[in-house]
Design a protein around this nucleic acid. Structure first.
Length: 596
DNA sequence: GCCGTTTTCGGCCCGACTGTTTTCAGTCG
């Protein structure tokens, strides 16, 4: 059983306890334990094998005992007994927005829809026949909302990738700022998972600090790419973008903007933890500010910015990317938050595809090597790595591959030696090489002489089991010229999960042999994922943040990989492309002496 | 059921919204 399945189980038990009317805190405890499972980057089974289940936050003596039974025997009779009271359809119903466990349970029983299969269709039918409105506790309105909820559910199941949401938000912000002749917008910021730079985003939420909310809202609902205005209220508005995505705007007077920004940035768990801390100090926190007890009465204090808000709770300001309640609050209380990496620390991009034709089975890039260099210089970099795909191995013999790579090397040599050294810019000649199913690299040994370094990546046979896949990756990484494991999990957001790897083995191999895990910035990869980045940091494994650009303009995407690194608590020291050119080639064993 | 630099017992986040209600329960973020 993997972590997500265990989370499903624990949450189902929580739901059953809720229906049974058990202690609500017991219910919450199971929900928390479920969430903790979803957050683990390492399998809970591994914790069990090491006897460390109780080290998972939210897992205590009792749940640990149940999980132990689960791993040892494959089932937990106690859970099965508890779950018997819940018809399987309930778990379909609670996915409908506006329907929680209680309502789902009532619908399942009163309408006699117990099976999971076809449950939503049956519910829809019942609603259309007016069978819900007549149930006790329901009415016309709730029936209508359930119908709309089902519709929304089918539409909403796909979350946006971070880059899509980010660019949409920037468009709205730019539009609002451009038309703001009277400077009504004092501050404007994205909110929620978007501001926290989570890899996927549900809705685009934007906050504006202003003294004239009506003017801003009037402007907002005229956004040319909006196809529908849902609501335009006094302080908030909602439109539907032509892509179908929802965009919310929230306004607040500048004096109180800090608490609003903080509250709606979340995460929910971060906020809950903050309020627990506040409570112990006899304070009460909300989106309006902090209430202090004064002479027995509560008095609200407002905050123009987040810094002063966090300060009054005894914390240093927490970067949004860290606000997941995964240790950042404890660190902020001790003023020991890490200094996160930022764009200015990046000295080069080591995963770029130029238009040089390597006769690969994958895509060539669209921009010439020279154009990539120009772009890199405009970004303030000192170097870049040209890493086109290897020539397709089934259609080239050794000699042909070497010829292609020789011509490829000429291009970087020409750039490196034809320019004035005063420019202080260098091209590393690399290659992105497929790791074949067997673990072999897809280029002949002799070809490596023409390369400065290589990235090894998996582009096929994703379904090997964990043991085979780990062996394959480690074999691929073991060549001395291979320095980087490209997009290490192989996930494609919204399309496929990553393949199964034994991360403990990968981490210790990388650390021992100076191999570097890539944080790939491509929009639907964002790979390594944030949780694994955090684990890599904890294990002392160094990484490289690359764009995998197939055109010069894609080199601007580095911010997305960077954001995932920040979510993984990454500092400059953890990332090798923050090194100067000389230090980098030293690390790669390429010290050439002389002017380079 | 979990958790602890005031606690191993006694607590456990806050406010808004909504619909079906006669004073509130359920859901959401």
């Amino acid at each position: 059983m993997n972590n997500d399945q265990i989370a499903d189980l624990l949450e189902a038990v929580a739901a059953a306890y809720q229906i049974k009317g058990n202690n609500q805190f017991k219910v919450v405890a199971y929900q928390k334990a479920g969430l903790a499972m979803r957050r683990l980057a390492i399998e809970a089974r591994d914790f069990w094998e090491e006897g460390k289940l109780e080290e998972i936050p939210g897992v205590g003596i009792s749940i640990a005992a149940h999980l132990t039974e689960l791993f040892a025997k494959g089932k937990v009779p106690h859970f099965n007994k508890v779950l018997k009271i819940l018809p399987p359809s309930v778990f379909k119903f609670i996915k409908i927005p506006g329907v929680g466990v209680k309502i789902a349970y009532k619908l399942a029983n009163d309408l006699n829809i117990k099976e999971s299969l076809g449950a939503l269709t049956k519910l829809k039918k019942a609603a259309k026949k007016g069978k819900i409105a007549v149930l006790e506790g329901f009415g016309q309105q709730s029936e209508k909302e359930i119908l709309e909820g089902i519709k929304k559910l089918t539409r909403d199941q796909k979350r946006m990738t971070l880059p899509f949401a980010w660019e949409l938000a920037q468009k709205v912000i730019k539009y609002l700022n451009e038309k703001d002749e009277n400077k009504k917008i004092i501050k404007i910021e994205p909110l929620g998972s978007l501001r926290r730079m989570s890899a996927t985003v549900g809705d685009v939420d934007i906050a504006v600090a202003t003294d004239d909310p009506q003017k801003v809202i009037k402007r907002f609902i005229c956004f040319p790419e909006a196809k529908k205005v849902v609501v335009a209220g006094k302080n908030t508005a909602r439109v539907i973008h032509r892509s179908g995505e929802q965009i919310d705007l929230k306004t607040m007077k500048p004096e109180a903007f800090g608490a609003l920004l903080q509250h709606f940035t979340g995460s929910k768990d971060h906020n809950i933890h903050l309020r627990e801390i506040a409570q112990k100090k006899d304070l009460s926190v909300s989106e309006y500010g902090i209430k202090f007890k004064k002479k027995g009465r509560l008095q609200l204090k407002e905050y123009p910015d987040e810094q002063s808000f966090y300060h009054d709770l005894g914390l240093s300001w927490v970067p949004p990317e860290l606000r997941e309640d995964s240790g950042e609050i404890e660190a902020a209380l001790k003023n020991k938050l890490p200094v996160l990496i930022s764009q200015k620390d990046i000295k080069g991009d080591l995963h770029l595809h130029s238009s040089f034709p390597t006769q690969s089975s994958h895509d060539d890039g669209l921009s010439s090597a020279e154009d990539l260099v120009t772009k890199a210089q405009s970004l303030g970099y000192q170097y870049l790595g040209l890493t086109e795909h290897n020539p397709v191995y089934s259609q080239h013999n050794k000699k042909q591959v070497i010829q292609i790579l020789k011509r490829k090397k000429d291009i970087s040599d020409k750039i490196n030696y034809s320019r004035s050294n005063k420019l202080f810019f260098f091209v590393l000649n690399g290659l992105e090489i497929d790791i074949k199913r067997s673990g072999e690299l897809a280029v002949p040994e002799e070809a490596f002489a023409f390369l400065d370094f290589a990235i090894a990546s998996i582009h096929s046979s994703f379904k090997l089991n964990k043991k085979q896949m780990t062996k394959r990756v480690l074999l691929g990484l073991s060549h001395p010229k291979v320095k980087i494991l490209g997009h290490p999990t192989g996930r494609k957001i919204g399309q496929r999960d990553g393949y199964d790897l034994d991360w403990d083995q990968i981490f210790s191999f990388c650390k021992k042999n100076n191999k570097y895990l890539e944080v790939n910035s491509w929009f639907d990869r964002l790979d390594l994922p944030d949780l694994l980045i955090r684990d890599a940091v904890k294990n002392g494994v160094k990484m490289v943040i690359n764009t995998d650009a197939h055109a010069a303009r894609h080199m601007d995407n580095l911010k997305y990989g960077l954001s995932q690194a920040r979510r993984g608590w990454v500092t400059t020291d953890d990332i090798i492309n923050t090194l100067s050119y000389n230090k980098l080639i030293d690390l790669f064993g390429l010290k050439k002496g002389g002017e380079r």
